[in-house]
Computed example of a mutant assay.
Amino acid sequence: MKLLSIDKNGTYILGVKTEEGIIDMEEALKEVPSQDLTSDVMDVIRGGQERLASLQNYINNLDRSNKTYVLNEETIEWGPSVTRPNKIICVGLNYRKHADETNAPYPKMPILFNKFNNTLTGHKKDIAIPKVTDKLDYEVELAVIIGKKAKYVSEDEALNYVFGYSTSNDLSARDLQLKTPQWLPGKSCDDFSPLGPYLVSADEVREPNNLSLKTIVNGEVRQESNTSDMIFSCAEIISYISDHMTLEPGDIILTGTPEGVVLGYPEEKQVYLKPGDVVTVEVENLGKLENKFKKE
């Protein structure tokens, strides 16, 4: 299934993508109540496969010609595909060619850092470039969304703990990021983790380490790669993180970015994001995530 969040004046409502349009679950449940379901995407994630199956059954039996709750995708306001994660954990330097372009050695274990909920925003949302940076960079990433509590999970079992996947843009203020050994200031400004448009259930993504990725800036392709270039696979990352902390349903793991970021260009060719730029990041089967940038 493809789930999403509809932003209704700052309140995020569960949406479901169908051939007929986007099902607004708040409006649908008013007309066709269900004891098993709510209009909150986090409830679906925490309910796991059983809740997902209930939602699929509900959608299958719903009158999808009803325009009260079947919306045109072009008219909705998008929220982040996951709205209230307990944790946002990111992996740095996890693509071989990206490490090569930044002259960094391949890490011997995953390099982890964190972001916070203030960084989450949705598809088609304008993002203000913070006045404290002159070097804002894009990073297309595969986001892994945890579906079950995970602690000391083996690599063989790790993908069984995944609820689904999303496209993400791990925005990075390079001048802030590189001021100190800790990357936090350059990674956690407001709206620095657009996520979506969809949360695609894991059953629709058979092999997360064989997905194409792309970034387009103002119509120009800047990043084009495949998750097969990861140094640490999704399963390895989940297992490694679960050895150090308990992963909870709804936790987001951003798995790293491939080559083609501005930081990887020779200094004389580095042109960072500026107001008016439009960035589209895409992961195969997960949808295109587009944001326009503006002055703060």
Rank of each mutant, 00 (worst) to 15 (best):
K2M: 08
L4S: 04
S5W: 04
T11H: 08
Y12E: 07
I13L: 00
G15W: 01
V16C: 12
K17Y: 13
T18F: 04
E26F: 06
P33N: 05
D36I: 08
T38K: 04
T38S: 15
V41E: 12
V41W: 12
V44L: 03
I45N: 00
R46F: 00
E50S: 14
E50P: 00
S54V: 06
N57E: 14
Y69E: 03
G79P: 07
S81P: 09
V82W: 02
R84G: 00
V91K: 01
Y95N: 09
Y95Q: 05
Y95R: 10
K97D: 15
A99H: 11
A99P: 09
P107H: 11
P107S: 10
N114D: 09
N117R: 13
T121D: 12
H123M: 06
K124Y: 12
P130C: 12
P130N: 09
V132I: 15
V132K: 03
V144Q: 10
V144S: 09
I146K: 11
A150Y: 03
K151V: 12
S154D: 09
S154K: 02
Y161D: 07
T167I: 07
S168V: 12
A173E: 07
L176Q: 13
Q182W: 11
W183F: 15
P185V: 00
D191S: 14
P194N: 13
Y198V: 08
Y198P: 02
L199C: 09
E204C: 02
V205K: 01
S212L: 11
E220N: 05
R222D: 02
Q223I: 03
S225W: 00
S233N: 03
E236S: 10
I237W: 04
T246A: 13
E248C: 02
E248H: 04
P249Q: 02
D251H: 11
I252Q: 01
I252V: 14
G256D: 07
G264A: 11
E268M: 05
E268T: 07
K269R: 13
K274W: 02
P275H: 04
V283E: 08
L286V: 05
N291V: 02
K295D: 15
